[in-house]
Nucleic acid binder design. Structure first.
Lengths: 240, 240
DNA sequence: TCCATAATCTGGTCTATACCAGATTGGAGA
DNA sequence: TCTCCAATCTGGTATAGACCAGATTATGGA
């Protein structure tokens, strides 16, 4: 609209950015509607949506399905190499955690899990599916696959708190080594629905595969995070 | 178009996915143009682009600016906690690495770097900006900020290979501890241009801050990766 | 006061079209 | 054969609408 040779939607992105910064819109605050913004900036809804998508990709704003656009809260710091429970590190950072168990069941090891765990296909396995909130925003869903050989009766416990804490305190289980994988992906299907985001929304996948000192499979953890929800932060080689 | 209650662009996403899988389109192979696809699937370019964006978010395809859509190569496995050079682990995985030094200069510590490094503002600092390729696709750009107090004359060396290897072998420097940060972001400005992607393209940011045993700042590494280019893979607590 | 319902507001999806700018290609001329 | 330039192809940007479905709000009756 003003600068030359610079697409309108990028100009809008920058103007909206400035506006959010200077107006000091606070976390979780709602933006004006797309129609209102397109009038205010003399453009169409399509173009406004392009600009908003840019800010969404930056992690500055997020959308709540058919409710509007909101300012993204600060990222949660997270160290996947540690066994500190979700509730604890969320609280430590001054946020309010909540966990919902969407389902938990005893099932059988599928082929893909057999391949990475070393368990035989068809062996019993616990499967817990949970959704985690920070300040009432659902940030991730998590599948836990736990070896019942090491922790019989786990499913009758509450799974709304730290599973690892329970494994440690009740069953005296500690992982000897683990493989961690992290990569960006698109949230879709079950995960997108559970997080109430659009199909294909940007996410971050974190997988943790844990074994005990004998090399026995303990647990597989597959986490699907909103892309703007966390900042992985690891300190290496220090006894702080 | 066929199933009910399921948006066209998601149907197209699935059909294109199947098509790519069954046709076994190989890595880096070009898809038909958007216009051709929109005719073939009896829809408009806008809707086809929505479907393509979904596959892009999945990491299945990527776009080359105004050239077309291509099938994404396999993700590179990467362990940011190790000091193995880029060239080495790319080669180990059967790919072909290449590094371009876009610029290198002696400059002064800016405030933001002072804050995290402990160096005073205005202190001399080396700044190297490089672009890294795998099989001739530019996957990341990287800023290195290196403390010249520990490695005088570094800039006169070639920086097209591993900086860490050079620090280790020539200057006998090894990091005693380091802070690593990882989070998804949007590639923009200089980084987007250098990687030849659109403004706001999805990326993954990896930062490594290294100190020696006395707690002196050694180096800061800020990497901007394409979101579909890598899979972070870390093994913890094992002497494999 | 409470609850069911209707009106309204929101983003989500989709069509049809236009023009732009960079990348590629093909052909004419040296 | 080589080089340069024009034509063409590509995705990128933008307009102007339309309708849908879920979420919210207002309303009116019990």
């Amino acid at each position: 609209m003003s600068r030359t040779d610079y697409p309108v939607y990028l100009q809008l992105r920058d103007r909206l950015w400035d506006w959010i910064e200077t107006e000091q819109l606070s976390s979780q605050q709602r933006l004006p509607s797309e129609r209102e913004l397109s009038e205010r900036f003399h453009t169409t809804r399509v173009t406004i949506r392009q600009a908003l998508s840019q800010l969404e990709a930056e992690g500055l704003i997020f959308r709540s399905n058919r409710r509007g656009w909101y300012v993204t809260p600060e990222r949660l710091r997270y160290d996947p190499s540690r066994d500190v429970g979700f509730n604890r590190y969320v609280t430590e950072q001054g946020f309010c955690p909540r966990t919902e168990t969407l389902f938990k069941q005893l099932t059988e090891v599928p082929p893909w899990l057999s391949e990475i765990s070393g368990l035989d296909v068809g062996t019993p396995i616990y499967h817990v599916f949970r959704r985690r909130y920070v300040d009432e925003r659902g940030l991730l869903v998590e599948h836990n696959y736990i070896n019942p050989a090491h922790c019989p009766g786990l499913l009758s416990e509450s799974t709304d708190l730290s599973i690892w804490q329970m494994l440690r305190e009740k069953y005296d289980l500690t992982p000897e080594h683990r493989d961690i994988e992290i990569y960006p992906l698109a949230l879709k299907g079950l995960e997108a629905e559970a997080l109430n985001v659009n199909q294909g929304a940007a996410g971050l996948y974190i997988q943790r595969l844990s074994f005990d000192q004998r090399g026995d499979f303990l647990e597989l953890d597959r986490e699907y995070w909103l892309h703007d929800a966390l900042k992985i932060s690891v300190r290496i080689g220090d006894r702080h």
